[in-house]
Structure formats: C-alpha cells, structure tokens
Design a protein around this nucleic acid. Structure first.
Length: 300
DNA sequence: CTATTCACCTGGGTGC
DNA sequence: TGCACCCAGGTGAATA
C-alpha cells in the first residue's frame, strides 16, 4: 500500500521521466479519477493541455506535479495514489491497462505517463499553489509552495520542516490511542497502517495506549522509529505485497522481507519469539507482539 | 470545536 | 464450478 516511502519512490521516478516535458493532451476516462477536481474532468484535461511540468514534489502521501499551464500561474496537479494507484511510464503502443483512468501524452512523443488505479481511492486534481505555512526554519524546501488542497496535511518526518518536539508536545496532550494519532495526517503525515505497526513494534508500544500515558522520551523514540523504518523502506524501493504497488516501471520494492510486525500474524517475534498477534482496531488490522508490546489495562 | 464512524472501490481468497 | 461473503485500507464527509 502506498505510504510515504512508496510515494517517494514514485515521485523520484516521475521527476526523472517527466520534468521539463510539455503535455500534449490528457485522456481521462470516467468521472471518478477527477472527483476531487471540482470543475470536472473536462476542465482538468483542458487546462493541462500545453502545460509544462516544472517539478515533482511531495508531502506525506500527497504527490504533486508543478505545471506551468498556458494561461495561468503555475498550478499543482495533485496525485494521490489512495490504496492501489500507480503512475506508470509506458510507450504509447503498450496495451491500455483495464484501470488506466488518465493517460498523459507529451509533445516530445514517448513515453506516456499513465495513472492506473484498480480501486480508484486515488485521484487527480489541479489546484492553486499556496505558500508553505509549515515551512518555518526550512523555507525553500518547497520552492513552488504547497497545493491549496494539501495545506491541512502536517509535515512528514523526512521533511526539514518536520518539528519533532512540537509533534511530541501535541501527542502528549491527547488521550487518543497512539496508533490513531500516528495515522492522523493532520498530526504527522506519511505514516499508514504498515509503518505504524512497524514503528510501534520497534518502540515496544501497544497501539491502543493513550498517547498521554506515554512519556515524552517514549513518544520521541516512537517517531524516530517511524522515521527510521520509512527511510529503510525507501532505500530498498518500498514495500510491495503484490503487483498493486509498483514503481513507475512496474517493479516491486523489497521491504516486505524486512517487516517485523505487519502481516506477520502467527510468526515468532524476531526479538523474543512470542507469536505475533493480529487484532482489529479502528476497523484496521493491527499486528503486534503481545510480549514486547503489552496491551494497556482495560483494553479489549 | 473535537473525536469517531463509515462510504467509497475491486479483486483475490475462502467456505459451502 | 458457482456464489456469497470477507478482506485489504486512505481519505473526507457525516455523525455523535
């Protein structure tokens, strides 16, 4: 599932293959892929035609291409991969994928850029760029600004603008379960179910613990583990379980081999040998070691 | 205002 | 072989 490392792999691929190129046309199929583009798919395709791609940027799980459109200030083409979205680089003669919702052709010919999404939880939208009010001491990290539709998303742990002590202070005030907060993109962005479970395992913390019950050093360590595990995943191309998550060339990442908790139900904990358990929490699967990560009193 | 739940979507797997 | 059902889960609107 695309979380921060997987989205970053895609961003790098798009940057390599698409920056500087000019869009000839965008073939959008169906209404759903552009449902977050309020003016509709026709407007999206019309305004992108003739636009030049200036940059590929990212915050958390949100990826955007900065586009110099013919008639307006630079815009952000926000791409969210959702659960199963892919951006693929393909020659024009390659068969159209069943779930290819948008195909970008360029004035310089091949390759095309295709947005393919089996479950269409992801999508495309063109929005204005706004100054990065979260930039703080790290101005210049997003020189084109942040898409207006992404300004509510918190900085992610790989950004210079990420203020770890400030996030820890926020967490310390909340009685909410720590896993819920790790997944809250308004608190810290980029973490999804896989890396939340991995960070909690590494920090030996049960996800149902109220954040306020953890010490500031423990919360700090947890976020550092989240940063570490996402960095390690990025180094090997992300986590793939099947053909649903792939880079722009259709290749899988290798981090699934390094997972200690997520998807390891019934396997021995690599630290203590106790069998990893799966529990449903927040209507999601949570994987944890019942010995290393004791449940809080009264949970379940 | 904050906290929590649920609809959205498809394909692969399972049990009968 | 067929079919009903469950499961994966990021987001944001709806609800409490």
């Amino acid at each position: 599932m695309p979380e921060l490392p997987e989205v970053e792999v895609v961003r790098r691929g798009v940057a390599q293959h698409a920056i500087g190129r000019t869009i000839a046309q965008v073939d959008i199929r169906g209404d759903r892929v552009a449902r977050r583009h309020v003016a509709g798919p026709m407007d999206l395709a019309d305004r992108l035609a003739g636009g030049q791609l200036l940059a590929a940027d990212r915050r958390g799980k949100y990826l955007w291409l900065v586009v110099q459109t013919p008639d307006e200030d630079p815009q952000a083409l926000v791409v969210h991969l959702g659960m199963s979205g892919q951006l693929l680089v393909d020659p024009a003669q390659a068969p159209r994928q069943k779930h290819a919702h948008a195909i970008f052709t360029f004035t310089d010919g091949d390759p095309q850029l295709r947005f393919v999404d089996q479950r269409t939880f992801g999508g495309l939208a063109l929005t204005d760029l706004a100054p990065d009010h979260r930039g703080g001491a790290a101005q210049g990290e997003h020189p084109h600004g942040i898409p207006a539709s992404v300004t509510h998303i918190a900085a992610d742990p790989l950004e210079a603008a990420f203020d770890l002590p400030a996030v820890v202070r926020v967490l310390k005030t909340k009685d909410t379960a720590i896993k819920r907060l790790l997944l809250d993109q308004n608190v810290v962005s980029g973490i999804g179910n896989i890396y939340a479970d991995e960070a909690l395992w590494r920090a030996k913390i049960h996800g149902a613990r109220p954040a306020s019950s953890l010490t500031k050093p423990a919360l700090t360590r947890l976020l550092e583990h989240a940063t570490d595990v996402m960095t390690a995943a990025l180094d090997v191309g992300g986590t793939s379980f099947d053909a649903l998550y792939v880079n722009i060339n259709g290749q899988s990442g290798y981090f699934d081999r390094s997972l200690d908790a997520y998807g390891q139900t019934g396997q021995p904990c690599t630290r203590c040998g106790t069998l990893i358990q799966r529990e449903v929490f927040m209507n999601r699967s949570s994987h944890f070691c019942p010995m290393c990560q004791p449940a809080p009193r009264g949970s379940r």
